[in-house]
Amino acid sequence: TAARVRYGGRDWDAQELRAAGKVDARGRLVMAPEDLRYLRDVSFDLLGRSPLDAEVQLAAAETRAQTVDRLTRTPEAWETWYEEELYYFLLLDNFRPATPRLTTIPQKLAAGTLTLPAAMQEIVISQYFNHRNPGNDTFVTVVLEQLLGMVVQNQPMLLATGKKMYDGYEGKLFGETGRSQADLVSIVLRQRVFIERVLDRQHRRLTGAAIPPAVLERNVERVAADAAAYPEVMKEWLLDDAYMARALMLRRKSDHQFIRSLYVELLGRRATYEEFRLFRNALQALADPGPIRSVLAKVLVDSRELKVEAVKDSRQWVGDLFVRMLGRAPTAAELESFGKAAADGHVRQAIQAIVDSSEYQGY
């Protein structure tokens, strides 16, 4: 029986697949350029980083829908969401949650035992959020502004009512009665505008664009009826024609994506939280983080953990480097110049040149 290989969601005859150029000389699956570009976009948007080599091979065997479904079920996708939410609420460093009830949120979201609104409620009612926003005025202001997008200075009665609830007194907010911080947060999270803002904010994070009004209306109705529907809504965004069209355009990496990608592409592993935190804080210290990106990258390029061996096949090495770091094959000129650098033993310099390029700043 002829050997069969899974590629693009179906089984192929191994010889047929090789003849079609979908398997290289090393026996590795080769994704079509547009499929690799899509995989990189989805990986950056869901995981906050580029895909590992093993993940490229796994995705090559799947359809796009299968890849998106698999990635949205991974704890890492929800760890990335969680970290971005902590950043949004400025729960950093000394205010970073440390109790299992909060640190296990990504695993619960991945398992489907916790909904996204419930996860956000856990964050906002936590002692860490309270410490970050001490006092009734600050707490209520941040809750109303960040969860509902309100300008509290224009809503003095709502602010006064929220402060009463915070202090343990009965008050009526948006037609509902409450008498505690937890009541205040619960009432706010039940508002339609909260769902609208969450969906729009997440859509912008994942796709780089505002959610179309008709899509927003449809998604709000769906999530309002079933809070567990958010992951399915997210998958629809990532498989939408508009998202696939945007995959053809270069989007600038956020500082967080830049850091995570450096570790994956240079060291072949994810950054630890402490490594990520140190790099993030360094980038945050400057109004223009561009120059410091090159400095931080050089720290990894020059590190002992980046294993540099003599290059035996310079063309193959350059091809692998460009696919891994830029998601495309090198041009003839790049193949020649980078191949010469590698052959002359200047591997680290070649890697640094890519990291310093304007193209590497996007995905």
Rank of each mutant, 00 (worst) to 15 (best):
I351S: 01
T104Q: 13
Q146K: 15
A282S: 14
L278C: 05
L283G: 09
G319T: 13
T207Q: 09
D313H: 13
L71M: 11
R204W: 11
L216W: 04
R64F: 03
S254N: 05
S294V: 07
S294R: 11
L36S: 07
Y87S: 15
L306Y: 06
I125P: 04
G327K: 02
P156M: 12
K163H: 06
A229R: 10
S261W: 03
G168H: 09
A341E: 09
L29R: 11
L36C: 08
I125T: 14
W237S: 05
R37Q: 14
L184G: 00
P51Y: 04
V215C: 03
E232G: 15
S186D: 13
Q352N: 11
D45G: 05
L17W: 05
A209P: 00
G9D: 08
L46G: 04
I123D: 03
L250D: 13
L173P: 07
V30H: 09
I351N: 04
V23P: 00
V223S: 02
G327W: 01
D302Y: 09
Q349L: 14
L102V: 05
L47R: 08
T104R: 10
A25L: 14
N219A: 15
A343N: 07
Q57E: 12
A25W: 12
N219P: 05
T63G: 08
V152D: 04
A227W: 02
P106V: 00
Y273R: 15
M150V: 11
R201S: 10
Y169K: 15
G9V: 00
Q121V: 04
R315D: 14
